[in-house]
């Protein structure tokens, strides 16, 4: 019996040690066949366009004019950087990203702490909380537009403003008829927070659930206060996941703010809620169709996003080494 088994394992050993050259070849072939289409598609529809738009960003070109691109060097970048309106838009985008991500982090953390321990129906309730993040951002923007309506919207009604002429008109940045700059931006930020806090909660919750019990047990033996346990155990243990949440949200705030803003305000009133993605769209696809200049701006946004992600990832790695 034992000899039979031994001989079988021997056969297996021989096979794995000296693989059949034909099978090895076909493995390699299969590997290439399996990966090839994916890489080709990614290069054709992602990498090539990026290279193409890098070229366009150095040219004067409009997609609707019947002219070839003209090389202008760094002129487009110079124009973008010296345009005062651009700084305003970057500041709006910065505020949007900063406030929405910060609020999502605080609220998401609090929510995660609340649903951390199981209670009757906690699975169902947690799923209910998660619903907003699965919705289409532009559709969300649209239905919040109805919610914010100054006369028949639910927001003012629930806040107790019964007289429409005294109530805030959120998306027009007016409070009882007086212009209140910033109101529209905050209205959009509130929706972003409503939509994406669940995402942050989900990530932090998975971090909380992964903290081993013995850390708390040890702290309890040492009679550490709940406050101390939070600062010294809970917070450091979930920090890596928190950083990932911030990274995802920051990048997405540049991306998805477009859908939300277009659904709610289209950038208005004036340019009060115009985030950089909306500016890009307007420059590239409306009015003059300034394809070259929009490409330059797009590249600058891309560089900002890459820089921010790099900063986060480096921080994250340092924290992992430190832990």
């Amino acid at each position: 019996m034992s000899t039979v088994i031994k001989s079988q394992t021997d056969v297996a050993k021989v096979r794995s040690a000296q693989p059949n050259p034909r099978r090895d070849l076909s493995d390699k072939a299969i590997r290439n066949i399996f990966i090839f289409p994916t890489l080709v598609l990614l290069i054709a529809i992602n990498v090539f366009p990026l290279v193409y738009s890098l070229y366009l960003s150095f040219t004067n070109y409009s997609a609707i004019a019947n002219k070839q691109p003209v090389w202008v060097g760094f002129e487009n970048f110079g124009r973008v950087l010296s345009d005062e309106r651009m700084w305003e838009i970057f500041s709006t985008t910065g505020q949007y990203v900063l406030f929405s991500v910060a609020l999502q982090l605080i609220l998401g953390f609090a929510l995660a702490m609340l649903v951390r321990d199981k209670f009757f129906g906690s699975g169902l309730v947690t799923t209910l909380i998660l619903v907003p993040m699965m919705l289409s951002p532009v559709v969300v923007g649209l239905f919040w537009k109805l919610m914010y309506n100054p006369t028949f919207g639910y927001v003012n009604y629930l806040l107790g403003f019964s007289n429409p002429s005294l109530a805030p008109d959120w998306l027009a940045s007016r409070w009882a008829g007086d212009p209140t700059p910033g109101l529209a931006l905050w209205a959009v930020i509130i929706v972003d927070v409503w939509m994406w806090t669940p995402f942050v909660m989900l990530l932090i919750l998975s971090g909380l659930k992964a903290i081993p019990d013995y850390l708390y047990e040890a702290a309890a033996i040492d009679r550490a206060s709940a406050w101390f346990q939070f600062w010294r155990i809970t917070l450091p243990q979930v920090t890596p996941l928190m950083m990932i949440a911030i990274l995802f949200r920051t990048i997405e705030a540049f991306n998805k703010s477009f859908d939300l803003v277009m659904g709610m305000t289209g950038g208005g009133p004036g340019t009060q809620t115009e985030v950089v993605a909306v500016t890009l769209y307007k420059q590239a696809f409306q009015g003059q169709w300034q394809t070259g200049r929009a490409s330059a701006l797009a590249y600058m946004v891309l560089i900002i996003i890459i820089a921010i992600s790099n900063l986060y990832i480096r921080n994250l790695n340092r924290m992992k080494e430190g832990a």
């Binding site: 529809i45 992602n46 366009p49 193409y52 738009s53 696809f285 797009a298 946004v301 996003i305």
Partner: peptide, 13 residues
């Protein structure tokens, strides 16, 4: 992670 608007300009062309 690329913003949609960044890739769309060349894709459109």
């Amino acid at each position: 992670m690329l913003p949609a608007v960044v890739v769309t300009i060349p894709l459109f062309l």
